Simulated scan of single mutants.
Amino acid sequence: MDVRRITINIAGRTYPLNVPAAEEETLRKVGKQIESMIKDFEASFDVRDKQDALAMCALKLGTNAEVFALNNEKNINASNERVQQMNKLLEELEK
């Protein structure tokens, strides 16, 4: 496995990381998104320090992840129901 050493800057701090090469682009992209979110929160709200902005980022990202997971679960359930309906139809056609 190809591992790369990268540095991500978040909220004025530098984080050196050893990451699989396949994940490097994703981590850099997420780091930039977090930085952008911090700037947006600082501009839109009375954010006193970076800790508050980071907490708001964590809450937003966690909420987004939970909504995504719930939507995936609904899609999987709907797909399973469709497959079951198709199986029933196929069984009826076989009779």
Rank of each mutant, 00 (worst) to 15 (best):
G12W: 02
F41H: 03
L90F: 13
Y15G: 05
N75K: 11
K88L: 14
E73N: 15
R5G: 08
K32V: 11
N18W: 01
P16A: 01
M1S: 13
T7P: 00
L59Q: 01
N18T: 09
E92L: 11
S44P: 04
N9S: 10
Y15T: 00
L90E: 10
T26K: 03
R48D: 02
R5L: 15
D52T: 13
T63S: 03
L27R: 06
T7C: 11
A11T: 08
R13S: 15
T7D: 14
C57F: 00
N75F: 08
G62V: 03
N72L: 15
N87P: 00
Q84Y: 09
L61S: 00
A55R: 13
S79A: 14
V83S: 14
I38W: 13
A21L: 06
N71P: 04
E25F: 05
I76H: 08
S36C: 07
E94N: 02
E94D: 08
V3G: 03
A43G: 00
E81A: 05
M37I: 06
Q33V: 01
L59G: 00
I8E: 06
K60Y: 15
S44F: 03
S36H: 04
R28F: 03
M86R: 15
N18G: 09
V67I: 11
E94Y: 09
E24H: 00
Q85V: 14
S44Y: 06
A22S: 14
A55P: 04
